[in-house]
């Protein structure tokens, strides 16, 4: 990837840049639900990481091949049995948590396989979502673009909900970032004003 495309990816995908800031150069990464592989490719080009993506969809798999990244076709719902414990510096689950059936299971697997886990998800507690629910409708927004009947998102949560799950799964939160629709950090009332949430966590020793 050339310099220009790296910087344009950063501009187009501020969520990638937010994750990349947490990644130590040269780290070993597992990207769960890696889609077309562009995050892993971005991290490879900007952070010199080595890693693998995990993806189930055939079309995404082909895109990963074209992006030249390592990808393993596997159903995340079935766990990560191909991956040894403690074998990655970071296990990333980028905007995939909300579409998973076995939410608790995947967090536990991330804690087993990785030294640290990174999760990003759309914050259901964002005020625009709340307004739509108060108005009597399931929310449709920039980060939740689907309608209730065609959404792949089955396990939506708020910042508070996710933090409670981490506690339940023995995950210690190391860092949190919350972004609004202008891709700026949200520090004041994040559960109300934040659209995208990012967490970095490790397992309690």
């Amino acid at each position: 990837m050339t310099e220009t495309t790296v910087s344009s990816t950063a501009a187009l995908r501020p969520d990638f840049a937010a994750i990349a800031e947490w990644i130590k150069p040269g780290a070993k990464i597992l990207d769960l639900g890696c889609g077309d592989g562009s995050l892993l490719r971005y991290l490879r080009d900007t952070r010199n990481v080595f890693g693998y993506g995990v993806e189930i969809d055939d079309d995404n798999l082909l895109s990963c091949f074209r992006n030249g990244i390592n990808v393993i076709q596997n159903d995340l719902e079935a766990g990560l049995s191909s991956f040894a414990s403690d074998s990655f510096d970071y296990v990333i689950l980028s905007q995939t948590l909300q579409a998973m059936r076995h939410t608790e299971g995947i967090i536990k697997e991330m804690l087993r396989v990785g030294k640290e886990g990174i999760v990003s998800f759309p914050n259901f507690g964002y005020w625009k979502n709340r307004m739509q629910v108060i108005a009597g409708h399931m929310p449709v927004s920039e980060t939740l673009p689907y309608r209730w009947y065609d959404t792949p998102n089955i396990h939506l949560c708020t910042l508070g909900d996710f933090e409670a799950l981490c506690q339940q799964c023995d995950a210690r939160i190391l860092e949190r970032k919350v972004m609004n629709n202008h891709d700026r950090p949200v520090n004041f009332l994040p559960n109300l004003r934040g659209m995208l949430a990012f967490y970095r966590f490790e397992r309690f020793a």
Binding site: K28, F50, Y52, D58, L61, C64, F65, N70, V71, I72, Q73, N74, S82, F83, A84, S87
Partner: peptide, 21 residues
């Protein structure tokens, strides 16, 4: 095939795996 993939992953070898329907 997944046994092969696991052995490769354990050795940090570049590997991609496709399970074709």
């Amino acid at each position: 095939s997944r046994e092969i993939v696991k052995a490769l992953l354990d050795n940090e070898i570049n590997v991609s795996y496709a399970e074709i329907t």
